[in-house]
Design a protein around this nucleic acid. Sequence first.
DNA 1: ACGCTATGTTTACGACATAAACATTAAACG
DNA 2: CGTTTAATGTTTATGTCGTAAACATAGCGT
Lengths: 201, 201
Amino acid sequence: MVTVSTSKAETRTYHHGDLRSALVDAGLKALEIAPLEELSLRQIARDAGVSATAVYRHFPDKRALLAAMAHEGFDRLGAAQFNAVEQASPPLRFAESGRAYVRFALANPALFRLIFTYGEQFEGDHPDNLAARLLRAQTTEQRHGNVAEADRLSLQAWALVHGLAMLMLDGRINADDALIDRIIDPGSLFVVPGGGTAPAV
Amino acid sequence: MVTVSTSKAETRTYHHGDLRSALVDAGLKALEIAPLEELSLRQIARDAGVSATAVYRHFPDKRALLAAMAHEGFDRLGAAQFNAVEQASPPLRFAESGRAYVRFALANPALFRLIFTYGEQFEGDHPDNLAARLLRAQTTEQRHGNVAEADRLSLQAWALVHGLAMLMLDGRINADDALIDRIIDPGSLFVVPGGGTAPAV
DNA sequence: ACGCTATGTTTACGACATAAACATTAAACG
DNA sequence: CGTTTAATGTTTATGTCGTAAACATAGCGT
């Protein structure tokens, strides 16, 4: 039987070239339209045009593939936050970073869940992306070097936006843009007793 | 063949009596030692001493069984919060309710996740348990009837504790009791610009 | 007493994750 | 260059899963 190769110059090699990233890409693409629990290793392999067991040449099991996808997702989330921080002027950076966080979650629900379900655990110290590190540094400075307080503020802010994102994803509160703004309100949150909003970095 | 019944008076009837709650109970018990994704309908049925397909006489599918379990879990969470609110004196009720929320999540990780993954969606209005309603009413009063502001405070508080619980469950921040207290700190959160902590209900 | 309907069981099917054995090809080494 | 070898694919097989369909039993209203 004559193998009719595709007309394109892309020589259909037995070996794939970079199956590992192809699988991660296929998985991330699938996550855009399907929830996490509907992702099957077999489907991802099919999408990548490869047999199911080929996956095991690159990942010890399904979990590891999901972890690789989560890693990539974490990077994308970090990039979204960094962009938001970069584009905002100092007094609004904290709030903008939070808004970017929640918006990313709403735009990529399944991926956002995956990041926190299968992402690497960062025990001990909390994990950071660039934006978070930047914000904490600026907050520390604004708090006259009170690191403990800046740390607390960072965690409180993280918990707030993470909870907001999760509750919206789970349909507990309306995924409404105006509501996001009302919850992440620099004027109402973290106000120092002396007057003036706190993390005005 | 002679059916050797168990010596106990519990006559092994063909019909179960209350299989529905037995299944929910078995599922909840299983969730105490295994994560959600390891829960199989077949295992739950086995634990209840019944064939797998018997489940379908009481639930249309696995999802519905999980939803019933989530409902029961939601009630337990609400009860835990209510107890905390009841036992705390007014100025600390808000914070104690939050602490109870996070403690419940840490004590029942799989159940807590289930509640928010498979629980009923409450679109439009946010869902409440008794404790939340009570707190919001008191906050409204303390804010001289400013309902919008009380609502915002309630949502902010919910997002904060929910995010804290989730991040701890996912191993992003240490599930440490002292840390919970530091994050849920009435003295640092929601402070009104005029002075004095805000939701001091 | 009898039959209807509740609620169970057995059997069957296709999808899944993964293990084991086998096939192909790219790269290392002569 | 040609040969060996390790990397990277495929095929086949196993046991578990959710669920549909057909069948069995028993409790209840008449």
